[in-house]
């Protein structure tokens, strides 16, 4: 008889993880600490550290995009979770619909909208206004990040909020809490897991993006993702330095997320006291 909890059921996944997660990571580490001849060196790390300003800018833009996503997605997800079941299903579909379209195509569409002679500026000049500088700005990059990643914020928030028992909200009201007190003392702390997973799911891809910054940001918004892409595929091919930069990015993202999660849980506790 086959037992579902049998140990061997996890073996394929363990093999998969070793082959496609652990091994590549070890390779990256190996390349990051060796030169072209294979000798151990810190040169790559030192070189990657010189890209710190680019990394800071990436984190800065990704953080802004994450905050904007959270601000827009939170009330939306809450409202969505209070709809009737059939409406909820429809809204989930609408949220996910853009995700079924190709990522590149969506970003191209924004490029067409924001270009100097793009749709928005044509519209502005046609009604007699002066055109705006939209494309190749940090704002365009943040917009692209928000547009592309907001479903990853909405969905975890929504799924946490549907699990908040309505009777808890009623109980808070019964005990004397008005709308804001109920939100601060019950809904917000109970939706914290959704906030954490939503911000992670937006921040991590946003901080390492190269498509959005490459297509909407121009030369001034060269981010760490663009840099890594150039080192692996582009004109400044350098496998070792690229690995070192990737490693640096990974470490910085992990530290940022750790600090962020820590802040989050402290915030939650403070809100209750």
């Amino acid at each position: 008889m086959i037992k579902l909890n049998a140990k061997w059921a996890s073996y394929p996944y363990i093999v998969w993880m070793i082959l496609f997660t652990v091994l590549p990571l070890l390779l990256i580490i190996y390349f990051a600490f060796t030169d072209r001849t294979g000798a151990f060196t810190f040169d790559n790390i030192e070189q990657a550290a010189a890209y710190l300003p680019t990394l800071v800018k990436s984190i800065y833009l990704a953080a802004i995009a994450t905050v904007i996503c959270l601000v827009f997605a939170y009330p939306f997800a809450y409202a969505m979770s209070r709809l009737s079941f059939s409406r909820q299903k429809m809204m989930t579909m609408l949220v996910m619909l853009p995700m079924w379209m190709n990522f590149l195509l969506r970003t191209y569409a924004w490029q067409a909208l924001l270009e100097d002679n793009g749709v928005i500026n044509s519209l502005l000049t046609s009604i007699g206004l002066s055109p705006l500088k939209l494309i190749n700005t940090s704002g365009a990059v943040v917009l692209g990040m928000v547009y592309n990643y907001i479903p990853y914020m909405i969905l975890p928030l929504y799924s946490v909020m549907t699990k908040i028992d309505k009777s808890l909200v009623e109980a808070a009201g019964d005990l004397g809490a008005g709308f804001f007190a109920t939100f601060r003392r019950v809904v917000l702390p109970l939706s914290m897991p959704g906030i954490i997973s939503g911000t992670t799911m937006v921040f991590v891809p946003a901080v390492s993006t190269f498509v959005i910054s490459g297509m909407l940001g121009g030369a001034e918004n060269y981010l760490i993702g663009d840099l890594i892409e150039a080192q692996f595929l582009g004109n400044s091919y350098d496998l070792n330095c690229g690995s070192a930069t990737s490693l640096l990015l990974m470490v910085v993202v992990l530290i940022t997320m750790a600090i962020f999660n820590r802040l989050d849980s402290e915030d939650a506790e403070e809100a209750l006291l």
Binding site: S167, E170, L175
Partner: peptide, 19 residues
């Protein structure tokens, strides 16, 4: 609204705050 009433409720499934 409930929060302005001088009554309190013991809910059927208790509705205790899990956090």
């Amino acid at each position: 609204p409930p929060y302005k009433r001088k009554v309190n409720t013991v809910f059927q499934k208790y509705a205790l705050f899990p956090h």
